[in-house]
Amino acid sequence: MAVELKEEGFRLKDIFLIVRIPEATYHYHVKNFGKEDPDTELKKRITHLFQAFHERYGYKRITNELKKLGYCINHKKVY
């Protein structure tokens, strides 16, 4: 909706007030529109695991299951 309003000539400042979204959110979506999500497969795996454990596993248990399957996630960056 915000993109359409911008194309019609409305100022971004006014659009953010009407649509009630932060400016950063707008720019994030404009920048990433049309790009393929690199985490699609991981998201499918998470959904599958959640359903396989009868929707009782939280993020900690799901993370542990993903690590058992060989996924490298939630690793800390060392500077």
Rank of each mutant, 00 (worst) to 15 (best):
H48K: 13
A24K: 10
A24V: 04
V19Y: 00
V78A: 06
K60P: 02
E4F: 08
T40I: 03
G70A: 03
R45G: 03
G34I: 07
K67Y: 05
K43W: 13
K43R: 07
K44I: 07
F33M: 05
K60G: 01
R61K: 15
Q51H: 10
K31V: 03
I73Y: 06
K6N: 09
P38K: 04
P38C: 01
A52F: 07
Q51V: 07
K13M: 09
Y28F: 10
E65G: 08
T25N: 10
E55V: 00
H29G: 00
I18A: 11
L69H: 11
H27F: 11
K68G: 09
G34W: 05
H48R: 10
R11E: 08
K35A: 02
K68L: 15
F10I: 06
H29W: 13
D37F: 12
K68Y: 10
D14M: 01
E7N: 02
A2W: 12
F10N: 00
I62M: 02
F33P: 00
I46V: 15
N74I: 01
T47D: 05
K6T: 05
R11P: 04
E8C: 11
I62P: 08
T40V: 06
M1C: 05
E4W: 10
I15G: 02
E23K: 03
I21T: 07
E7V: 08
Y79V: 13
L5H: 09
L17T: 05
E8Y: 09
I73A: 05
K68C: 11
V30L: 04
T47V: 13
I21L: 11
K6M: 13
V19P: 00
Y71A: 02
I46A: 03
L49D: 12
G34Q: 07
G58T: 09
F53G: 04
Y57R: 04
F53N: 14
P38W: 04
I62H: 08
E36T: 09
V78D: 06
D14F: 02
F50P: 01
K67H: 13
L17Q: 12
K76D: 12
G34Y: 03
N74W: 08
K43F: 15
